[in-house]
Design a protein around this nucleic acid. Structure first.
Lengths: 150, 150
DNA sequence: TGTGAAATCACTCTAAAGGATGACGCGAAA
DNA sequence: TTTCGCGTCATCCTTTAGAGTGATTTCACA
């Protein structure tokens, strides 16, 4: 990470030096000064932008970490249909619940299930009501406790 | 992110213009040109370094490869401290994460931890950044996958 | 002694979520 | 055939989340 900054500083320094040299020549042969100034600005701006792009782009370090996951000795998850029915949660609502738990926004859920965002809102509102939740995070938490979702 | 680049371009443009104006004066009164060049370089270099610092934050994409390891499962939950450290998640941020997972709102978390809602927001913002999450539900989901929370 | 990480808080905006209500089509059951 | 549950969609409105920025304090470490 810090290498980038150091690298930039170095390049900047070198550029300054080089440009200073060039400047001498330009001045000696009495060249157009404004063009020169613009060029300097452009060069440094380009350098900065290039750097910015370098850092912004998906040049991210990809860390592959192997996590030891205990093989599902605990059952692969059995949905609690009793509770599901007793709460009167419909299949569609359950579907929305699962998507919410997956961390999707209402819009994303709508796109995924081919319905409007409004519909998703309606479903989730009714869902929260049935679950007694005030927020989607709470709904997820409750649903997990009730074993409605894994 | 892209805002930074745009901002940089804009500032660069403005600087070029300003510098060109200054250049005129400098040339008119026949001033030392190398000082001027160094100044330009310095300004742009500073801009670039500032940009670099802004962008140098962790953007690592963490890929978790799950390896099935037969373990007598149902262990009381062991926090993945490796990941925790590699992501640079602070103890306080983890605390907020747990509360978010519990389904609390920012306000409720603030009251529970005796800090302002604004503070909770700051923590959660940084947390989402480190986790690469866009929403709190997604943060919870990712954190569970990464075994940062039960 | 100053440098940096961490925690705290504020303020402004935009985006997303959520509540309330009404409406419509469709298929199953009364 | 009418009723009712379900899924669909909308509109208005309020609340909550989240992004971005800047500032202060504390504490450890060099």
């Amino acid at each position: 990470m810090k290498k980038h900054i150091l690298l930039y500083g170095l390049l900047g320094g070198v550029l300054i030096a080089v440009l200073n040299l060039i400047e001498y020549r330009f001045l000696v042969i009495e060249h157009s000064a404004e063009i020169y100034g613009a060029l300097i600005g452009l060069l440094f701006a380009l350098l900065g932008i290039w750097l910015g792009l370098k850092l912004t782009r998906r040049t991210d370090t990809i860390i592959v970490r192997e996590v030891e996951v205990p093989v599902p000795a605990s059952l692969p998850f059995a949905r609690n249909d009793e509770t599901l029915r007793s709460l009167g949660i419909t299949p569609r609502e359950l579907e929305i619940l699962e998507q919410i738990a997956a961390g999707l926004s209402n819009r994303e859920i709508g796109e995924k299930l081919f319905v409007s965002e409004n519909t998703v809102k309606t479903h989730s509102s009714r869902l929260f009501d049935k679950l007694g939740a005030k927020r989607r995070t709470q709904a997820v938490q409750l649903a997990k406790e009730l074993r409605l979702i894994p």
